[in-house]
Amino acid sequence: MSQRTFFTYVAGDSPLVRLHPLPKVTLLLSVNLVALIIEAPIPLLLLTIMLALSFKLLRVPLIGLKKFVIVVLIASQAVLISYLLGSSIPGSQVYYTYPWGAYVSDMTLLYAATMIMRYTSMLLGSTLILATTTSRDIVYGAAAFRLPHTIALMMSLAFRTTTIFVEDFIRVRDAMILRGANFSEGSILERARKYANVFTSMIVIALRRIMEIAYALQAKGFGAAPKRTYYREYKLRISDVVITLTLIAGVLCAYVLRYYVGFLAFPGWLPSV
C-alpha cells in the first residue's frame, strides 16, 4: 500500500517511509551540511551520483524528472554567468580577461561546475527527504527534537495547505482565463499585474479560511493541556540510532577532512592536482 506524503505517494515499504523521524531529519540536515562543507569537485560529483541513485534504491518516485533537470540547468546557468563575468580565480590557463578586471581561467570553470554540483546535491538530498515526509513525520520529528508541538503543526499546516492553495490558485487563474485574460502575453510587468489579481483573490480566500480553521482548532482543544500526549508510539530502534550516529559521524568526518586535512577543499581530490 502506498503512503500519501505532502507531495506524492511513496511505496509504503520504502525504507525511508519506515524510518523514524529522528534519523530522517538528521539525514536532511546532514546532506545539506556535507554538501556545504565539501568544496572538491570529484567528492561532490560522487555525492550527487549517490543521492540520485538512492531515489531508485529507496523506491522514491523522482517527481517530474524532466522538470527537475530543466530547473538544474536554469540554476546552473545563473551560477555560470555569475562566475564567468565576475570572478578572478587563478588557474593554469586564462582564457579571457574583462576590462573590469575579472577573468575566466580553467579553475573558474571547475569552481563553477563544483558550485553547480553542490547546489544539485542539496536539491536532490532535500527532495529525497521531503518527498517522503508526512505531517506525522514533522509532528513526531519535532517531538523527538523536543520542539514545541505548535512549531510542528505550523510547518505541517504550511506544507499541507500549499497543495490546497495551489488548487485555489489554478481555479482563480482559470476563472480569469474564462473571462478573456491571457497570461502568456505581455511583458513581465504586465503579466505580474495580471497575477496580482490572482494573488489578491487568494489572500481574500485565505483570510476567510483562517477563521474556519481557527474555529476547528479551538473546537479540538488545541493548546488545551499543558502537556500534550501522543497517539502513536515511535520507538527508536537500534537501526535508527545507528543511522543517526553514522550520519552525524559523516558530517564530522567531512568537516575534519575539509578544514584540518584539506582533502575536501577546492581543488582537493582531483587526479590532475
Partner: peptide, 11 residues
C-alpha cells in the same frame, strides 16, 4: 503561530 504562520506560509 499555527494559523497565521502555517496557513499563510502555505499561501
Amino acid at each position: 503561530l499555527a494559523i497565521i504562520s502555517g496557513i499563510f506560509g502555505g499561501v
